[in-house]
Design a protein around this nucleic acid. Structure first.
Lengths: 255, 255
DNA sequence: GTCTCGCTCAAACATAGGTTAGACGCGCAT
DNA sequence: ATGCGCGTCTAACCTATGTTTGAGCGAGAC
């Protein structure tokens, strides 16, 4: 299934292990045994096309995916076709931690861009969690941080106006990308979402997203060239969004 | 600190243990050793007055509380004073699982009614989680279910209109209370929230909550006597809310 | 008993954001 | 090179929900 894409599949075991270990090591101090256990995980690298469903509501997931490259999102659908995007997943995020211990998915996961993930069978992950308290802790932290982001999004959608919401989304993107060294030095980055998807993440219509995006540009807070977003004035954008990155728990390490 | 309230503190060890074990046993099969370990937890019963803050954003929590009786909620505040209620906590819910592995709280917790909780020191809880995979799994499930509820609320606030939102909140309350046998047989229950609090949970203003509540009553979906909500036509209410209890994962047991 | 106080309820008016409907432009398949 | 499809952008119009304000009312304090 692997398309001829860069060299990822050539040095696969090393790359995947490195990514996983690097991620978990930001949260806890891994012992040598932990590292060996992670390296021994039977994970499979997979590249998935844009828009492909990676998981559907109601399904019983068998694998947990760790994002190596690209973006995905979680969405929930209303019976009458409304959509809400409830999470954006970036390199370094785990996609199915919720399904580690829940048997039936309560939402869909869809590839936002072409995406490469490492898939770990759920039983193997449960095994390692039962055996290594350090690794279990690191995964707990990841899951709890995602819940914290959900809470901030609830505040965002429930109590902020369109301009603040959008600015907040842009700030969060910027902060998360910066935290994983994925944004350019000047703070600009590529936002791989359509305006409709942004609307679905913010509880807005695409035409209103368009209006507000223009307003942010006119106000001199951002620049846009195609989908490349440039943060012109980080402080102003942060203030416009009332953005405070505490909820991302970026510095949370081994408690 | 215990006020002279009923007899709760007299038979405290048995009551608390029973509640905790009963809760965890709905998720996993507890071994005899697990039960002993839970019984040995150094927990403290505490009753807290309505409106008291149990935890504040930015604080480092030292204890994890398990609700025995009464209600609480999580809230997030905007710098300019807007509030969003992001969770309602009922008997049988854990209040600080997020802070089991995160050092700084990202939200406030406030007592909605007079509430009685069992407080477990975080280190003791971490200890038991490291030692018993069963108990760890049960707590994982609790935390993951709460994240799932966050997601449903995001859909609710982001993509449903006021009537559906409110109907959805009422359905969730009803379903959760029923699941812990706390509602009356006829499906009516006491909703201990003011209309302003409902608004804050739904991203609405109190006056609009009032309008919609009236409309739901006029439509014959509910009755109200003071704060007692009667569900007149469960099916109609469920349909009006597009309510599907899957996201509550009520039947999720030992995976 | 009556005085607060907090909550509910209501009406009149204001607006942020939704809806509908196209035009435009760019990349890609043929 | 042409046409198609998807995303962006705009404008005109509409409505669900917010805002402001104040009256009613029940429960507890004294």
């Amino acid at each position: 299934m692997l398309p001829p894409e860069r060299s990822l599949h050539v040095d696969y075991p090393i790359v995947v292990t490195d990514h996983l270990i690097a991620k978990l090591a930001t949260r806890v101090e891994l012992s040598a045994a932990d590292r060996v256990a992670i390296a021994a995980l039977p994970c499979k690298l997979r590249t998935i096309d844009q828009s492909t469903y990676m998981l559907r509501e109601g399904q019983r997931p068998l694998r947990c995916a760790f994002v190596i490259d690209g973006f995905a999102y979680r969405q929930k659908l209303t019976p009458d076709g409304e959509r809400e995007i409830v999470s954006i997943l970036m390199p370094g995020d785990f996609i199915d931690l919720q399904n580690l211990f829940l048997e039936e998915s309560d939402h869909d996961v869809q590839a936002l861009t072409r995406i490469t993930v490492a898939e770990i069978p759920i039983p193997a992950l449960r095994e390692i969690v039962a055996v290594s308290p350090k690794i279990a802790t690191a995964l707990w932290i990841e899951a709890l941080v995602e819940a914290s982001i959900h809470r901030e999004w609830l505040l965002n959608v429930g109590r902020r106006n369109a301009k603040m919401r959008l600015a907040h989304l842009l700030c969060e993107f910027s902060a998360r990308l910066r935290a994983s060294s994925l944004s350019d030095a000047d703070g600009s980055y590529e936002l791989p979402m359509t305006q409709e998807q942004m609307g679905d993440a913010l509880g807005l219509t695409p035409v209103h997203v368009n209006r507000v995006l223009r307003a942010l540009e006119t106000d001199g807070l951002i620049t846009r060239r195609k989908r490349q977003i440039g943060v012109v004035d980080w402080c102003a954008l942060r203030d416009a969004a009332e953005f405070n990155e505490r909820y991302l728990h970026l510095t949370q390490t081994r408690p």
